[in-house]
Design a protein around this nucleic acid. Structure first.
Length: 896
DNA sequence: CGCCTCACGTA
DNA sequence: CGTACGTGAGGCGG
C-alpha cells in the first residue's frame, strides 16, 4: 500500500480536529495532567499523532478543520440528527483550545466554517487540492470519510490509541467494508450510524448491506428490485424503513462545495514558530514530546544549524582583525567581552562571526591600531548590518573606546525577550541550547593535535569567545525569523533596539547623590529607630528582635494575647495591613508600625545608597534592565532607583539627596498623567471615558460624578477616592473583596460601585472581557505595539492560577502599552536632544516618568522638548498629558 | 553560602 | 482575595 503512484504529486494533510481530539480523549488515561492539574490527554494524544504525521509524511500543505456550531443543513433535513449527543465532558473543551494553540505554534492553519461540519470542509479542500495536483490525506476517526477515498485521496483512520492509523486506499476500503469507496455512503445508509442518531434498517448490518449494494449497485437499485432481495425479514424491513434510508443517504454524503475562504497557498506547511512550541510544550509539560518534535519534525533544520556551527574558531593577532573584517559578508556578529560595570565598563576582547568566514576572537591588547580603527569604522557604519548579544553592553564597550555603534539590526537577548518576555534569563549559552539545540562550550577532547598545542599554557578562552560570536550569528538568524512570523520585527527595530543605547547612556550618566543630605537624614532616623525600639521592648516587657517575624509573632499573639491575624506559612501575618487591623488594641502596635517604616527607610535607602556612589564622580549608576519585566516595563537594580520613597513625607525626604551634577542647574521630572487609564480609554473606545478625558477636568472626580450620578460640584473627597480606586484597580483585575479592603467598605458595597461603574462605562467592561477572551484563544496578550505575553495558565483548571492569569491578561495589554509608549518617547526624546545640541541628559525612568538633569541655560528649551516628544509620541483617542517640574533636588521637582 | 519567606518601597 | 518590579532581614539547610 505504498503511495508510489502519487510520488510525483505534492501532499496535503487534512485533519479532523474534533474527531481526533475526541478519540485521544477517550483513548488516553485521565492521569495525564500538568502539575497544576490541567488534564492534557486529548492534547497529548493529538499532538503526538500530529508529530508522527509531520515527521513521517512531511506534507507540503496542511490544515486542521474543526466543527463550528450545529450542522445547519443536516439538522434542517433531519431534526434528530445527532440529537442523542450528550455534551462533551467539562475537561474536553479546554483541551480543544490548547490543541488550537499547538497548531498555531506549529503554524498549521485552522479552518472553521460556521454551521458546517469539519468533514465537509475537508472534503471541499481536498477536492480543490486534488484538482491542483495534490494527493490528499484525510486523518479522522470518523468512518464517513471512507466515501472520499480514491486514487488521489487516502483516509488515515485511527485505530486503537491514536497514533496508529489504517491507511485506507480504494482496495483497503473494499477489503474492509466489502464495497468500493463510491458505494460506502449507500452501505452506511442501510447500516445506519448510532453515534449520529441515524437508525439503519433493522436486521441489516455491515455484511448484509455490502451484499445488497454489491448485488444491486446502489440504493435505487435495491429498491427497484426489492422483490429480488433474498430472505423474508430483510425485504420487509427495507420497505418499511425506506424513508430513513433515503434520509441517511442524504445526510451521510459529504459536501464538497462548502463556501470556505481557504486558499491553498495559505495551507503551506513548514514555517514553525519553534519558540512558541517550546514555550507551549513547556507549560503543558510535554518534555518527551518536545524532544520528539525537535528530532522528528525539526530534524532537517537542526542538521543545517549543526553544520553551520562546525566552522573552526580562529584566534586573531595584530593585523588579523582588520584582515578578517575586510570584505566580510553581512550581517556581522560582534560580541564584546567587557569587564566592570558602568561607568567603568571596559572591553578586553572582541569576538566576531560572519556568513562567509570562520568565527574569530581577539584580545584587544593583541591588536594593533589598524585593527581597532577597522573595528571602530565597522561599528559606526549604519550601512554595515550587525547583530550582537546584549547591545547595551556593546554600547558601553564602544563608548569606553570613544566609539559609536550604529547599524545593529538584532540583539539576540532583546529578540528572545520579545519572543517570550516571561523568561527570566537570556544568557547566550541558554539561548543557543534553547533555540539551536547547541552548546557553546568547546568540545572537551580536541580531535587534532594542533588544537591541543594551542591550548597548552593558555587560560585565555579565545575559542569559546569565537563560538559565542558564531552562536550569536546563528541565533540572530533564527530569532529574526521568529520575530517576522509574529509580526514583531517592527517592535524590535523601532522600540527595543534603539532603546538599548539610550539606556546605556543613562547608566553611564548616573545621578548625583548629596551624601551630606543622607547623613543628616541618617542621624535623625537612627535616633528615632532607637527610641522606637526601646518603646516596643518596654511594651513587650522584654527585648527581642522586632525585625524577626517569629519573634514578633510570639510577642504579639502569645505573650500579649492579641487576636490572631491572617494565616501565613510561618504563622500569623504581622504586615502593615494586619497591624492596621490591630490598631488601638495595644500601644505596641503603633510603635511597631513606625519602627518598621523608619528602619526600612534607614536600611534600604539611607544606608544602602552611599556605598554605591562612585567616589570619583559622586554619581550613582543603576542598571536598567530591558529584559526582566514580563509586561515590557524596564527594571532598575543595583540600586533600584525606581522605588525611592515619595508617598509619605518621611520617606520623600530621601529625594532631597538626589541632585543635579556639576554643570547642571536643576533636575527636571516629566510624567505622564494617568497614562494607563488613558490607554484603557483608547483601547476600549468607551465614550464616557473618552469624554471624561476630553473635558480636561479632574478625571477621578469626573468619573465619580458619572458613577454616582451627581453633578461634578457635588463630588466630595470620599466619592472621588472611590472612583479613583476603581479607575486604578480596573487595569489590575480588581475584585470586590480587594476594592472593599482598600476603601474600608464591605464587599457588597464594593460590588455596587463596580456595577455602577461598569454601567456607566460599558465598553470598559467589554474591553477587559475581550482582552481575556482573546488571550484565552490565542494563548497570549498583545499591546498596541505588538508586544506579547504568553499566559498558558488561562486554561488551567486550578482556579487560583486561572484567575491570576486572567488578571494578568487584562493588565498586560494596558501596562505593556504604557511601557511601549514611554520607551518610544525616550528614544525620540534622546534623538531630539542630540539634534538640538542641548547638554540636557536623561538620568532615570520610573515607568511613567523620566528624570533629566538640565544646565542652567537650557531650562525652557529642555522643558519644551520633553513635553513635545512625550506627549506627541503616539496619537491616541485621548490626549497624552505630560506634567513637568524643575527643582534643585528630586524632592523639589515633584508636584506638590 | 545560597535560598526561601516575609515585608515593603515604587508605578 | 488587583498588576509589575527589587531589596533587606531573618532563618533555614548546606
Amino acid at each position: 500500500m505504498s503511495p508510489t503512484p502519487n510520488a510525483d504529486r505534492r501532499s496535503l494533510l487534512l485533519l479532523d480536529g474534533h474527531s481526533l481530539a475526541y478519540r485521544a480523549f477517550y483513548a488516553l488515561p485521565d492521569t495525564l495532567r500538568t502539575q497544576t492539574g490541567q488534564l492534557t490527554n486529548a492534547v497529548y494524544g493529538f499532538t503526538s499523532m500530529l508529530i508522527k504525521m509531520l515527521g513521517d509524511r512531511r506534507p507540503d500543505a496542511i490544515a486542521v478543520a474543526f466543527d463550528k456550531g450545529r450542522d445547519v443543513a443536516r439538522t434542517a433535513a433531519f431534526p434528530e440528527y445527532k440529537a442523542n449527543r450528550v455534551s462533551a465532558p467539562d475537561e474536553f473543551r479546554p483541551q480543544v483550545d490548547l490543541i488550537k494553540q499547538v497548531l498555531e505554534a506549529l503554524q498549521i492553519p485552522i479552518v472553521e466554517v460556521p454551521g458546517v461540519e469539519a468533514d465537509d470542509v475537508l472534503a471541499t479542500i481536498a477536492g480543490q487540492a486534488i484538482e491542483r495536483g495534490f494527493h490528499a490525506y484525510v486523518v479522522t476517526g470518523d468512518r464517513d470519510a471512507m466515501q472520499l477515498v480514491d486514487e488521489h485521496l487516502t483516509v488515515l483512520y485511527t485505530l486503537r490509541g491514536i497514533t496508529e492509523m489504517a491507511e485506507m486506499t480504494p482496495p483497503a476500503v473494499q477489503e474492509r467494508y466489502g464495497v468500493p469507496p463510491s458505494a460506502y455512503v449507500d452501505l452506511a445508509a442501510l447500516r445506519g450510524d448510532n453515534s449520529d442518531n441515524l437508525p439503519g434498517v433493522p436486521g441489516v448490518g455491515d455484511k448484509t448491506a455490502a451484499k445488497l449494494v454489491n448485488q444491486f449497485g446502489d440504493i435505487d437499485g435495491i429498491y427497484a428490485h426489492l422483490d429480488e432481495v433474498s430472505g423474508k425479514k430483510v425485504p420487509a424491513m427495507l420497505a418499511e424503513h425506506e424513508q430513513q434510508v433515503r434520509t441517511n443517504q442524504r445526510i451521510m454524503r459529504l459536501r464538497r462545495d462548502v463556501e470556505c475562504e481557504c486558499d491553498l497557498a495559505d495551507l503551506r506547511f513548514g514555517e514553525i514558530d519553534t519558540e512558541a512550541v517550546r514555550a507551549l510544550f513547556g507549560s503543558l509539560e510535554f518534555r518527551a514530546l518536545y524532544d520528539r518534535f525537535v528530532e522528528e519534525v525539526l530534524g532537517e533544520q537542526e542538521e543545517a544549524a549543526a553544520a553551520a556551527f562546525d566552522r573552526s574558531p580562529q584566534r586573531l593577532e595584530a593585523g588579523g582583525l582588520r584582515a578578517w573584517l575586510d570584505g566580510a559578508a553581512q550581517p556581522l556578529a560582534v560580541v564584546p567581552i567587557v569587564v566592570d560595570r558602568p561607568p567603568h565598563a571596559t572591553p578586553v576582547a572582541i569576538a566576531v562571526a560572519a556568513p562567509d568566514r570562520d568565527p574569530a576572537s581577539a584580545r584587544l591588547d593583541d591588536l594593533d591600531p589598524a585593527d581597532l580603527d577597522a573595528l571602530a569604522a565597522v561599528l559606526a557604519d549604519p550601512t554595515v548590518a550587525k547583530v550582537t548579544h546584549d547591545l547595551k553592553t556593546l554600547d558601553h564597550a564602544a563608548a569606553a573606546l570613544g566609539w559609536v555603534v550604529s547599524g545593529v539590526t538584532l540583539d539576540t537577548e532583546l529578540g528572545a525577550y520579545l519572543l517570550n518576555p516571561e523568561q527570566r534569563t537570556f544568557d547566550l549559552e541558554r539561548l543557543a541550547l534553547q533555540y539551536l539545540q547547541r552548546s557553546i562550550a568547546p568540545q572537551e577532547e580536541a580531535d587534532d593535535a594542533d588544537q591541543l598545542t594551542l591550548d597548552v599554557g593558555e587560560d585565555d578562552p579565545w575559542e569559546e569567545r569565537a563560538l559565542r560570536a558564531e552562536a550569536t550569528f546563528e541565533l540572530a538568524r533564527h530569532l529574526d525569523d521568529q520575530l517576522e512570523q509574529r509580526g514583531q520585527r517592527d517592535l524590535n527595530a523601532t522600540v527595543e533596539l534603539p532603546l538599548a543605547p539610550v539606556l546605556a547612556r543613562m547608566e553611564r550618566a548616573g545621578i548625583t547623590l548629596d551624601l551630606h543630605v543622607l547623613d543628616e537624614i541618617r542621624d535623625r532616623l537612627a535616633a528615632r529607630v532607637e527610641e522606637l525600639e526601646r518603646e516596643v521592648h518596654d511594651h513587650a516587657g522584654r527585648p527581642f528582635n522586632i525585625g524577626s517575624g517569629p519573634q514578633l509573632q510570639a510577642v504579639l499573639f502569645d505573650e500579649l494575647g492579641l487576636p490572631k491575624t491572617r494565616r501565613i506559612k510561618t504563622g500569623y501575618s504581622t504586615d502593615a495591613q494586619a497591624l492596621k487591623n490591630l490598631a488601638g488594641q495595644h500601644p505596641i502596635i503603633e510603635a511597631i508600625g513606625e519602627w518598621r517604616e523608619t528602619s526600612k527607610l534607614l536600611t534600604t535607602y539611607v544606608d544602602a545608597l552611599p556605598p554605591l556612589v562612585d567616589p570619583e564622580t559622586g554619581r550613582i549608576h543603576t542598571t536598567l534592565s530591558q529584559t526582566i519585566a514580563a509586561t515590557g516595563r524596564l527594571s532598575s537594580s543595583n540600586p533600584n532607583l525606581q522605588n525611592i520613597p515619595v508617598r509619605r513625607e518621611e520617606g520623600r525626604e530621601i529625594r532631597r539627596a538626589f541632585v543635579p551634577g556639576e554643570g547642571f542647574g536643576q533636575l527636571l521630572v516629566a510624567d505622564y498623567s494617568q497614562i494607563e487609564l488613558r490607554i484603557m480609554a483608547h483601547l476600549s473606545q468607551d465614550d464616557g471615558l473618552l469624554d471624561a478625558f476630553a473635558s480636561g477636568e479632574d478625571i477621578h472626580a469626573t468619573t465619580a460624578a458619572k458613577v454616582f450620578d451627581l453633578p461634578l460640584e457635588a463630588v466630595d473627597g470620599a466619592l472621588r477616592d472611590r472612583a479613583k480606586a476603581v479607575n486604578y484597580g480596573l487595569a489590575y483585575g480588581l475584585t470586590p473583596f480587594g476594592l472593599g479592603q482598600q476603601l474600608g467598605i464591605p464587599p457588597s458595597e464594593a460590588v455596587e460601585i463596580v456595577d455602577a461603574y461598569m454601567a456607566r462605562f460599558p465598553k470598559v467592561r467589554q474591553f477587559l472581557d475581550a482582552a481575556v477572551d482573546q488571550a484565552r484563544r490565542d494563548g497570549f496578550t498583545t499591546t498596541l505595539f505588538g508586544r506579547r505575553r504568553y499566559l498558558p495558565d488561562l486554561l488551567s483548571d486550578n482556579r487560583n492560577r486561572r484567575q491570576m492569569a486572567e488578571r494578568m491578561a487584562l493588565n498586560a495589554p494596558i501596562q505593556g502599552t504604557a511601557a511601549d509608549v514611554i520607551k518610544l518617547a525616550m528614544i525620540t526624546l534622546q534623538h531630539a536632544l542630540d539634534r538640538s545640541g542641548l547638554r540636557t541628559q536623561l538620568l532615570l525612568q520610573v515607568h511613567d516618568e523620566v528624570i533629566l538633569e538640565v544646565p542652567e541655560d537650557e531650562f525652557d528649551a529642555a522643558r519644551d522638548l520633553v513635553v513635545t516628544e512625550l506627549s506627541g509620541v503616539v496619537d491616541l483617542a485621548v490626549p497624552l498629558e505630560v506634567d513637568t517640574a524643575f527643582g534643585p533636588t528630586w524632592f523639589d521637582a515633584q508636584k506638590h
